[in-house]
Nucleic acid binder design. Structure first.
Length: 422
RNA sequence: GUGGCCGUAGCUCAACGGCAGAGCGCCUGACUGUGGAUCAGGAGGUUGCGGGUUCGAAACCCGUCGGCCACCCCA
């Protein structure tokens, strides 16, 4: 424990090969689903001027929850806490040149200066995927479908995760109908956001503290339990129709209490939760039609979501579908018997690599037993043994660790044989 | 940023004022050309760190760092 006195910084994680294998697996799955819908990978800078975020997210968020420092030129720099503003800038910069629709995705590190807890660290990896230049509900539906297909690919059934959808446009109309004045809208949204965190009495007290009348609170509760209200929204009707055609209806449902915290959302908003609500939101997103113009470009509508690596990992674990990954990539271990055969394994290993195989050689002539044990522990499926007998006959012995079968054959036949059993 | 719970071997934990331990994992041997199973042995600790109380502290007190929980917020 006190092996090293210098610990990782609070909320940062070491990625040993095992964890790195998991991250790589996530990244690969993200790539597969993103690309299957035609999205292109991009990346923004990890460092941004602080002002970029001030533009859109409240100053509280920026000042208290970002890693910020002053560079040597006196510039205030932030470690990026999110990608969407960078994306908006990149799109704004080439707004004229980029063919629409713009379908982009990204996976990279982000930082938030928050108190770490389960499912929340200060340094984390996030998948971002966005479609810009279209404002149709079908585009929103595609993003929800991307998320649903991703879950399905990972082995998370719709009984385990749900994508909950609402429309801010609809929510605003609902508040207006109830007679909640627009200056109470923000706070009312916040109260809605907290609905599932408080019991009813507490929530009512909170709502009344915010300035809502008893009648308004009652009416609001009606609205928030009306699971049919989406039918009043043309937007949502089209959205669910598209979701149906995309074949992911089972994952996606209307939830009038979904609001999302961010100020820049303008239309449909959604988040994914595990069915038992044991964890924070797995991903969250929505439509942001004004953001590109806020960062100084011609208006470009957009919709997208972001998913952190931490919560999805916990959810996969809970569902029992976390993959068993082998950090060691080698397909073949070359086992030597003595100094002479060890040298021979070097040239054989090169030969194997030249034919596209991943081969690792054991770097000292330990007992065969020890070397096989290493292969076993590392999960290397094939061992190539080279001892005096093999050397004398120009042969190699190839052992399949999974079946235990082994065969000695001429060196010229080894690659073909390996190809057969691999 | 506020309040609370917790830090003992790589991991999960025991000892709770009086010799720092177990299981798992790791290494070695039984088995000098063959992994997994079994058995035997071994390595690995300034009890997160710093101070205080005490004859004596892993334990009690204070501080600090880290983890977790609630708040806050969730980009």
């Amino acid at each position: 424990m006190s092996m090293s006195k210098i610990l990782p910084v609070k909320g940062a994680r070491d990625f040993y090969p095992e964890e790195m294998a998991m991250r790589g697996w996530l990244y690969r799955n993200i790539r597969v689903v993103s690309e299957s819908f035609g999205y292109q990978e991009f990346e923004g800078p990890f460092l941004e001027r602080l002002e970029l975020y001030a533009a859109k997210s409240g100053d509280e968020l920026v000042k208290q929850q970002s890693f910020v420092f002053e560079d040597r030129g006196g510039e205030m720099i932030a470690l990026r806490p999110e990608l969407t503003p960078s994306l908006a800038r990149m799109v704004a910069t080439r707004s004229q040149a980029l063919p629409r629709p713009i379908r982009w995705w990204s996976f990279g590190p982000f930082w938030r200066y928050e108190r770490p807890q389960k499912g929340r660290s200060r340094e984390f990896f996030q998948w971002n995927i966005d479609i810009l230049g279209v404002d149709t509900p079908q585009a929103d539906a595609e993003l929800a479908a991307v998320a649903a297909v991703f879950f399905r690919n990972l082995g998370l059934p719709s009984s385990a995760v749900r994508i909950l959808v609402n429309s801010r446009t609809l929510a605003e109309i609902q508040l207006e109908t109830i007679g909640i004045p627009s200056d109470l809208r923000q706070q009312t949204f916040r109260a809605i956001d907290r609905l599932d965190k408080m019991d009813q009495r507490k929530w009512e007290a909170y709502a009344s503290e915010v300035g809502l009348s008893d009648d308004q609170i009652l009416a609001l509760q009606d609205v928030l339990t009306d699971t049919e209200a989406w039918k009043q929204s043309k937007q949502l009707v089209s959205f669910f129709e598209a979701v149906e055609k995309l074949g992911v209806s089972d994952y996606i449902e209307y939830d009038p209490s979904i609001i999302r915290g961010l100020d820049y959302y303008t239309g449909i908003v959604f988040e994914a939760r595990d069915a038992d609500r044991r964890h924070r939101a797995i991903l969250g997103g929505g439509r942001y039609d004004d953001l590109v113009s806020i960062v100084g470009g011609d208006p470009v509508p957009g919709v997208g979501f972001a998913m952190g690596d931490v919560v999805i990992g916990l959810v996969l674990e809970d569902a029992g579908v976390s993959p068993e990954l082998r950090p060691n990539p080698a397909q073949i271990l070359l086992v030597a018997f003595d100094e002479a055969s060890l040298l021979q394994t070097l040239s054989i290993s090169s030969e194997l690599r030249a034919s596209g195989l991943r081969a690792e050689w054991y770097p000292q002539a330990d007992r065969i037993k020890t070397q096989l044990k290493y292969a076993d522990r590392q999960g290397i499926p094939i061992v190539l043994i080279l001892g005096p007998d093999e050397l004398a006959n120009g042969q190699v012995t190839i052992k399949d660790m999974r079946s235990g079968d082994q065969i000695s054959l001429d060196r010229s036949d080894m690659i073909e044989h390996i190809g057969e059993i691999l």
